[in-house]
Design a protein around this nucleic acid. Structure first.
Lengths: 336, 336
DNA sequence: AAGGATTGAGTTACCGGTAACGTAGAGATA
DNA sequence: TATCTCTACGTTACCGGTAACTCAATCCTT
């Protein structure tokens, strides 16, 4: 059965069935204009030869649109983005689209390279994480004339469309909340080394709230690693060794906060009595802690789903809202 | 700048530069056979018009191979697989390939549909998680004549190539170890609802070790959910309510085990005095626990990297080992 | 100075589908 | 009976690149 070296093409199926390529094509697309007898013969040959249509040919010739969607995320080591990606892929798959992944390591240069590569494959749309793009990236997107959704960071004037939340505000709100709790000496631990990303915006918001409250951010630790449990663990160690007087620490995400809680346990530092801890993102670990973690709740999955929905609507020729704010909710937990 | 509705093609660039399509093509591929003057004119037009080559055309016409790699994983909700995927994508990207994601929800039927879809795009290779494929899937792979790596589950006679570990053995070894610790009443909590997957193989191995030790598996709880912290939390609750005499519980992965530890804390059940807990996979959370979790160490990232390397070698025409066993290591922690 | 090699091009054909158009024969209609 | 309309196909052209071939002008050789 077709164990020659080349793949079976429609012409070969047609020839085997004793019809023209066009008739075979019509049968496969169930377009009408063929007899029942012909249909059966063609389908029999398709099955016998193991014919698989070459979508490259269809899309290439411009008769159909591609079903690829390029999705770029910073990295998979950050649990937050795997949830977003899951939301995206679930939705896209169920509508017959394929996710082409790109990990851009938070670097706009990497993103530019990836955009160029993926655009050459004529995707039906793109989903990009973040709002920081190089000029050339924007030029490429402009020329591509396909729908683009920027996710994660809310952007009131996006390149095309946008789904996310206001990270600055979420940081600000956390700062305000901690101030009302009476704290005056604040710390921050994260991993951002790029001023343009969302975590940096949260830190800025946090910082501003503290400044507005006439307090001060004592120390901030920015590690060059993925924001996970272990980074939180040694991040807090580093912060406390530099600024032991810190009263409360805001972490880039919940996993880091949990890592820090474990550090505190190991050092007999009582949370929240000796040190307050706040996370961000409400990640799964938060659901099994013995106490409620003070954090910011964000529906990561929904960001992915909405982004996909917007994209699919536009691909189908409908219009979609430019900007969707999925919001966030401060969880007043028991760790501050 | 090219703000018409259609994309710029090579012919248009060529025309603008006053040369033939072929000459422009030669310039872009730096193939030689053109004057310096011509080169500059063509490149100037490329830049001016924002020309991007259409890879679909090149690959379609058979002149080049596609750079797509289809990667199917069960789901992204399971942290274990996100690590594998990260290893894959990092390696593939660095060699100029693109990952086309497929989440198959552990269902061979879903996988079959996905394989059919992705093969229609002429990928250069496939990476599939697990060894359970439908007959039609195998037929499709057979006809596609591209390299395929099955990952995760070791398979001594894979379809093509294979990278993974012996899950049965890892379960067996854990069972043996727990027996040497003097336990006699065992429990298991996982999420598998498919007899053919790796977690089921671990359970089988575990079960066999216990039987070989003339003890018995008191109760096993299989939840229909992703194996995470929360599933571990309520999984252990369910298990203990049905079999309170259980002495030690083996979990499908570390996150579930940690969820269970938190449940025990909340119920004042002392670990390991009242109940022993063993995980699997050595996930990041294990690194910040106050005590060492008894678990099985697996290098997830390396599985992904090796899988990609094998694939890339074969794509480049070299041969690669059929089967690679990445092994595992029992971590004798403090939770049993 | 005649022949051969080199340089810098252009021309043609093809990949695998599908749109658009053409057409032979059967049956319906006037 | 002449024409009209279906039905069930076949033919041609095209998408955007590149391989393979051709060809004219120049530049060496001996």
């Amino acid at each position: 059965m077709s164990n020659k070296n080349k793949k079976i093409s429609l012409s070969e199926v047609a020839e085997a069935a004793g019809v023209s390529k066009m008739t075979a094509s019509r049968v496969l697309r169930n377009e009408g204009g063929f007899s029942e007898q012909t249909r059966e013969r063609v389908l029999a040959e398709v099955a016998r030869l193991g014919y698989l249509p070459n979508r490259l040919a269809t899309v290439f010739s411009g008769d159909q649109k591609s079903t690829f969607i390029g999705v770029s995320i910073p990295d998979l080591g950050n649990e937050v983005f795997t949830h977003v990606l899951e939301g995206i892929d679930r939705k896209l798959c169920s509508f017959g689209h394929q996710t082409v992944l790109g990990m851009t390591q938070r670097a706009a240069g990497e993103e530019e390279k990836w955009i160029e590569t993926v655009l050459a494959w004529q995707p039906a749309g793109l989903i990009l994480t973040g709002r920081a793009h190089t000029n050339r990236s924007l030029q490429l997107l402009e020329n591509a004339k396909i729908p683009v959704v920027e996710i994660w960071d809310l952007n009131s004037s996006p390149f095309d469309m946008c789904v996310g939340l206001n990270h600055f505000d979420s940081g600000y709100q956390m700062g305000r909340y901690l101030l009302t709790k009476g704290y005056t000496r604040f710390g921050y631990v994260g991993t951002s080394h790029d001023a343009a990303n969302a975590a940096a915006a949260r830190l800025n918001g946090f910082d501003r709230a503290i400044a507005d409250g006439s307090a001060s951010l004592k120390k901030q630790v920015l590690l060059k690693d993925v924001p996970g449990f272990y980074t939180g663990y040694y991040g807090i160690e580093q912060l406390l060794s530099g600024a032991p007087e810190t009263e409360v620490v805001f972490f880039q995400n919940d996993n880091m906060a949990v890592g820090a809680i474990h550090f505190c346990e190991s050092q007999k530092i009582s949370v929240p009595r000796d040190l307050g801890i706040a996370g961000w993102g409400e990640l799964p670990i938060a659901s099994v802690l013995p106490y409620r973690l003070t954090t910011v709740q964000v529906n990561h999955l929904r960001i992915g789903q909405i982004a996909s929905e917007k994209l699919l609507m536009r691909i189908n020729g409908d219009s979609a809202r430019k900007v969707t704010d999925v919001g966030f909710r401060l969880i007043e937990g028991e760790t501050v």
